[in-house]
Design a protein around this nucleic acid. Structure first.
Length: 545
RNA sequence: GCGCCUGUAGCUCAAUGGAUAGAGCGUCGGACUUCGAAUCCGCAGGUUGCGCGUUCGAAUCGCGCCAGGCGCGCCA
């Protein structure tokens, strides 16, 4: 039994099936208050429409059966339209042994049945350093992968490099301008060029390079766009690794375009009747798949649009055996959802297997004023500079605490205080504290045993902690199913809170050895769950702070 | 104008359609001769943007407003 709520649900469902021959999916929830027991269920949600019994008779029938389950329930009461379940203490504490036995697997499940999932995230254009918007996406994507794997899926992280198209061309031109500038010329970077200083730093080593200097301008642009792009990708990768985010694969748009010829893609779509020509361009009828208008595949000038690469890329993902795709995008791309789905359908895949998660934006706030970040203008906070001032664990925790679709105001001043006031330390301290307790116990020559007398744990807080520990699998389940990464940090903070409070009130290591052993066992379980939770969100669990 | 997201305590944010909407920070007041005070205990703080509806029950679902953000390119 690893998920209490699921277990109670199972019991209630079986009773309903036995007594009334009906299938229902009971809603079981954690009771909001102690007097309502540990869990509760609403009778109205159980009562089937066709049931002939009165509400009271129905309730009493269920209750009488539940009360029989004394090995699990201490009490089962009805209060208005709620059933309140009070768990048997012996049963409750005994579950802790399974927690310890499961160890770092506690909270995991096999729900995903090994289904292959691809999570693509960040995928920022290789035209500049990663900013804090990407940092948020990186934290979220990374944790989604971890959550899915913990839940029995086989999830991989992937980064798509947009290394084809006009933006790279502009990058080359911007670099060339900087090159001229380094030679003392007056320059002006084009309106849609990249103005950040990072480009200058990147190419400064070529100022006296004979080969580069002997090239004509066009050749130099070609050289720089490749060189700078590769250099930026390298920097992005190292920033992400510094942030603790690793990708299974960095896949290049150019490679995708080589694998699937543009002509083949267009021809295939044409054969389905999804392509037409208008105004000298080739169009894809995405509107008939739900897009608000059709999209251009091949422009008047004969070059392709990103719609072609996006279509090919998603086709490729499915062809590599992934059954479910998750794309993590910024809000500025939400308008692309339907066109990519259209492509997925056109290539014979189920659009439901493409899930697009929009991580809401990070708005820069400076002295109370909102400021739009712009990579072209060179106005943004980079991930690297953030990591220079704030501990990586604190950054991750900060971004993960928010609901994915909540907007986030990022105050420049906040970054400085983040390292001091971040709630992550509250949880990490809780972990360090448990470690310290074991160190102290060891000095007193008391070591954890497998079979402590857990019936000695009679403090209300001990019961509260045990129960909360047992909720962890359900929290993981919700976080992973609903892509609610923030549930993990919130859970950890709550567990830390009740543990800190308990620690303050109750002394763990005393001369009473049996009691000490029982309490150490509880502490061990707390430590394990905190560690598992922190690991899930990619935050360290320090033994000392 | 159309589409997506958001609106909850002074601030930053939680809340599986359920019971009296909760935390943290901040303010104020307390607690270390005992396992680490990066901790704990207490006080105060609300018409969940507004209205109507669905429901036994709405912060949550639907519709209409209001406010903010982001999109609406033969750029990505």
């Amino acid at each position: 039994m690893l998920n209490l709520k699921e277990e109670i649900k199972h019991i209630v469902r079986n009773i309903l099936l036995d007594k009334f021959g009906i299938e229902v999916n009971p809603t079981i929830e954690v009771s909001p208050k102690p007097e309502f027991g540990d869990f509760s269920s609403n009778l109205s949600s159980l009562l089937p429409g066709e049931c002939k019994l009165s509400f009271d008779e129905f309730a009493n029938t269920i209750l009488s059966d539940l009360i029989e389950r004394k090995e699990i329930f201490k009490k089962v009461l009805r209060k208005d339209s709620f059933i309140n379940f009070f768990l048997n203490d012996v049963f409750l504490f005994r579950q802790l042994k399974d927690v310890i036995k499961e160890g770092k697997k506690y909270g995991s499940s096999k729900k995903g049945k090994g289904i292959k999932v691809l999570v693509e995230f960040v995928s920022a254009n290789p035209t500049g350093p990663l900013n804090i918007v990407s940092a948020r996406a990186a934290a979220v994507g990374d944790v989604l992968v971890k959550l899915l794997n913990f839940s029995g899926y086989k999830a991989d992280a992937e980064y798509y490099i947009n290394d084809a198209g006009r933006q790279i061309e502009m990058l080359g031109i911007s670099a060339e301008k900087r090159f001229e500038e380094l030679h003392g010329e007056e320059i002006e970077i084009p309106e849609d060029g990249y103005k950040g200083d990072y480009i200058k730093d990147c190419i400064s080593k070529f100022v006296d390079d004979e080969k580069v200097n002997s090239m004509d301008e066009e050749a130099r642009i070609d050289f720089f766009k490749e060189y700078v792009k590769d250099e930026i990708v390298r920097q992005q990768r190292s920033s992400l690794e510094r942030f603790g985010v690793r990708f299974k694969k960095w896949i290049s748009e150019k490679a995708i375009l080589e694998k699937f010829s543009i002509q083949d893609v267009v021809d295939y779509l044409r054969s389905r009747g999804d392509v037409y020509e208008k105004d000298g361009a080739v169009w894809f009828s995405t509107a008939k798949y739900g897009d608000d208008k059709d999209r251009v595949l091949i422009k008047q000038d004969g070059t392709h649009t990103y719609v072609v690469s996006d279509a090919s890329y998603h086709k490729d993902k499915f062809e590599r055996g992934y059954k479910h795709l998750i794309d993590v995008w910024g809000p500025d791309h939400h308008g692309h959802v339907m066109r990519v789905k259209a492509a997925v359908v056109a290539f014979g895949n189920n659009p439901q297997n493409l899930e697009i998660i929009i991580v809401q934006q990070v708005v820069l706030v400076s002295r109370g004023k909102k400021e739009k970040m712009s990579k072209r203008a060179g106005r943004f906070i980079t991930l690297d500079s953030l990591l220079d001032t704030v501990d990586r664990d604190a950054v991750r925790f900060f971004f993960l605490m928010r609901r994915i679709n909540a907007h986030l105001d990022f105050d420049v001043e906040l970054a400085k205080t983040l390292s001091l006031e971040n709630p992550v330390y509250y949880t990490q301290y809780c972990h360090a504290r448990t470690v310290n307790i074991f160190n102290f116990a060891q000095e007193k020559r008391i070591n954890l045993t497998d079979e402590p007398n857990l019936s000695l744990l009679t403090e209300p807080q001990e019961r509260e902690i045990a129960k909360f520990i047992l909720l962890f699998p359900e929290v993981v389940k919700l976080a992973s199913e609903r892509r609610d990464v923030h549930r993990i940090p919130y859970y950890l903070l709550e567990l830390s809170k009740i543990f800190h409070s308990y620690y303050q009130k109750v002394r763990i290591v005393t001369d009473d050895v049996p009691m000490t052993l029982a309490r150490l066992f509880l502490v061990k379980a707390v430590q394990q769950v905190i560690k598992n939770g922190l690991t899930l969100i990619g935050v360290s669990a320090p033994e000392k702070m």
